[in-house]
Design a binder for these strands. Sequence first.
DNA 1: TTATATGCAAAGTGTTTGCATAGCA
DNA 2: TGCTATGCAAACACTTTGCATATAA
Lengths: 130, 130
Amino acid sequence: MRNTEQKSVILEVLQTHKDHPTADQIYSEVRERLPKISLGTVYRNLEKLSSAGMIMKLELGGGQKRFDPNPHEHSHFRCVTCSSVEDLPHQIKINLPEINSEAISNRIVLGTTLEYYGYCEECAAKRQLN
Amino acid sequence: MRNTEQKSVILEVLQTHKDHPTADQIYSEVRERLPKISLGTVYRNLEKLSSAGMIMKLELGGGQKRFDPNPHEHSHFRCVTCSSVEDLPHQIKINLPEINSEAISNRIVLGTTLEYYGYCEECAAKRQLN
DNA sequence: TTATATGCAAAGTGTTTGCATAGCA
DNA sequence: TGCTATGCAAACACTTTGCATATAA
């Protein structure tokens, strides 16, 4: 993987995020520093960085892929109203022994995705007002 | 919600499935019985049936939405090779008390999605041969 | 009778890709 | 030098939608 300015700016921009932006959000922020960058380059680099294990691609509910600067498996909370995706402050532990139980039979488990969905703090507060 | 032949055939077709087909898979099976049905009608009915709680729409990794005749929350296994999605034979229990712990703070949890991914039995067997 | 559902096709959304050029190693 | 990455635009895959017609209640 070759080092390019585009790639490092994309990584830097993502790493400033505590939330998990979509490719087009990253694109618009990167464009402030590299106005000529194309959306295709953003997608290609996000793909490369995630298959290199430097970031994580999230395919959760809601249609659009999101990108997480933290490449380690952890659970997320997705807001069904504003679609934001946040880390859960404390990791919810999955009962790992069960992964190897007969429930899995002859499948080979590579990983798990645990997603909570509902109203984020902001949207929950707005609902209380109505 | 009005009863139409399209809707009931879509539901019947989905209910014959133990796996979780995509909209276009359902479309092509339904078309064997209703050759003039349109893909738009399939999407509209799957949406209606799932918001009525009669089926479940799955938005897991892999891009395409899938539909599950069982509307009750349960965990799934997705094959990263053939993209099939299966129920896990035994439900993996999530530690529910944690959902209400401070980890969730002021969010309102509507549900959880627990997905395992890896190689399904068939694809795992094929890999062993190579 | 009338509001909802359908078929058709077009539009929408998010993502990927072909190609000529640019630039890293 | 040679191969990978880029910008651009077109293509792609999946899903939704507008509209005129058909149909359930």
